[in-house]
Write a protein that binds this DNA or RNA. Structure first.
Lengths: 124, 124
DNA sequence: ACTTGACCTCCAGTCAACTCCAGGTAGTAG
DNA sequence: CTACTACCTGGAGTTGACTGGAGGTCAAGT
């Protein structure tokens, strides 16, 4: 099954502009074109795009994602590099999750304070 | 105990530039100045600054943080608004954590794929 | 008295990541 | 044949969040 940019946008939640921008930034070098020059997304292409979204959403900058994609395109000899990059990134995600849990508590504490404050106002 | 901007920067991990920028953006309207016009951070000020960092790091845009601070300065009558804003933000944090856990799995799966791939190369 | 360091303001510059526009092509429906 | 829609490129503009430089004040140390 093949898709064009509009469908790829619908499926990933990215805008068409953003997808073209990613292509310009060499994140989508795996894409083929049809005879009119339109981008063709196959199943694999959508999976790659999904991975790109995952990396981006977890805070990886575009130039690092570009390396990851370049290495992926270069074949098996680059598996070690890719693994290393993903391992480090995984660590960062873990740290983010820990940090975010702390921040969640901070917000919850503030909400508890408000609850107490409202109670004491009512008891005036 | 009172602190000046350098110490506030050291304690929060923000740069001095960033703190001044936040002040310009009216995030630090709680700050007093000494007779020479230098910013004075007291314990409360540092707590506020910590809350600002927490909100910012969890993805709240500066203009929303500004509202939160304005309301905080305006007194008890704004508790409901502040509570509402924080409740919605808490929800977003929860969603982020869920999403990030999914993304963590995606990265872990990719790493597992690499492990399998390397094994099969070695068994050639 | 002078230098040094930490602070100040105003304002311009930078950066990442989009976002959009003008002008064009290709395929399809009426 | 024409209108419409979805796509294309190159390049300019926007946004949010800083970051840094020029020029100045003030207090403490030598």
């Amino acid at each position: 099954m093949y898709f064009k940019i509009g469908e790829a946008a619908r499926r990933t939640g990215l805008s068409i502009y953003t997808i073209r921008y990613y292509d310009k930034e060499k994140l989508l070098s795996f894409l083929k074109r049809d005879k009119n020059g339109q981008r063709i997304f196959d199943e694999d292409g959508l999976l790659y795009l999904g991975m790109i979204c995952c990396l981006k959403d977890t805070g990886m900058p575009i130039k690092d994602i570009r390396h990851f994609i370049e290495w992926s395109m270069a074949g098996e000899t680059t598996i070690d590099k890719r693994e290393c990059l993903l391992r480090e990134h995984k660590q960062k995600i873990l740290e983010k999750i820990v940090k975010m849990n702390g921040q969640l508590s901070q917000v919850e504490n503030k909400l508890k304070m408000y609850a107490r404050q409202k109670k004491s106002i009512n008891n005036d």
